[in-house]
Nucleic acid binder design. Structure first.
Lengths: 140, 140
DNA sequence: TTACCTCCCGACTTTTCGAATCTAGATAAA
DNA sequence: TTTATCTAGATTCGAAAAGTCGGGAGGTAA
């Protein structure tokens, strides 16, 4: 369904969200995701996130990556659809000469909309909160 | 998102649904989908549909394929999830040792459920009806 | 009985695309 | 200037999807 890019991007962004007061270097991010994301891949993803304005960067020493907005203002849909565009627009025919095509395309569209609705309704802050619940459970 | 198998399967099944009173030969089916599905691929898909009990067959002269249930009793989800299993279960980890994994997996699960809900709510009869609306519009 | 029509089915090739890697360059702070 | 960091592309690799092929087997009707 969605590719690893979305998966990785979410992991990375959640780590950034956890430390939203400062810049994290690549090494810190990789530590944060428990080395589950290859370095070069992470760089690429962060690049895309930056160009989209979701992440800001600081070069040189003490540099790194940080979210450019508070976690509560970043919807999961922003992340996912940025990295997996295909998952968004399934079948973009210019028009439908055949009725059969139209009907099936409408079906995919409905699916698409339901996905969009779900991902739109969740922010990074929501996910952070959920994550803390897990952690609390473990520590009790 | 979904593969061509789902797309093709839906086309084929809709053609069968349109003529649910008799067996359609492969040639007739291919005509019905306007040659948009390669013959050999269609055979493969029909085979899967047959083994799943959605389609029944008749060999020899006058033989062919037909739905084994009325279109109103066949949900789109049956077709789609039969041919694209991956689209159903995204990430089936046995358990979640890392909180980060849990949270993200829960996200995918919610997406998955929304897709399932959508596809469950639509039957072949619904799609046929919609198709007829298109046709009527055209002929006015 | 037999000739023909239809489905049946596994093995194969080609193509596509995601995942990961590599290499080189640009920028900014110390 | 040096060093740590980000920027960016090209390339390789592998798996899975898409599509193909050829023979086989069962059924019908004349």
């Amino acid at each position: 369904m969605f590719t690893m890019r979305s998966e990785y991007a979410l992991r990375i962004v959640l780590v950034l969200a956890k430390n939203c007061d400062r810049y994290l270097s690549m090494s810190e991010i990789l530590e944060g995701v428990k080395r589950s994301v290859p370095r070069e891949f992470a760089e690429k993803i962060l690049n895309i996130l930056k160009r989209a304005g979701i992440v800001k960067t600081q070069r040189g020493r003490q540099g790194g990556y940080a979210l450019s907005k508070p976690p509560g203002e970043i919807r999961v849909s922003e992340i996912v659809f940025l990295l997996d565009r295909k998952s968004r627009v399934f079948y973009e025919f210019p028009d439908c000469p055949e009725e059969l095509d139209c009907v099936i395309r409408n079906l995919w569209k409905r699916v698409e909309e339901s996905i969009e609705k779900t991902l739109d309704s969740i922010t990074l802050a929501d996910m952070l909160e959920e994550q803390e619940k897990f952690t609390r459970k473990k520590c009790v």
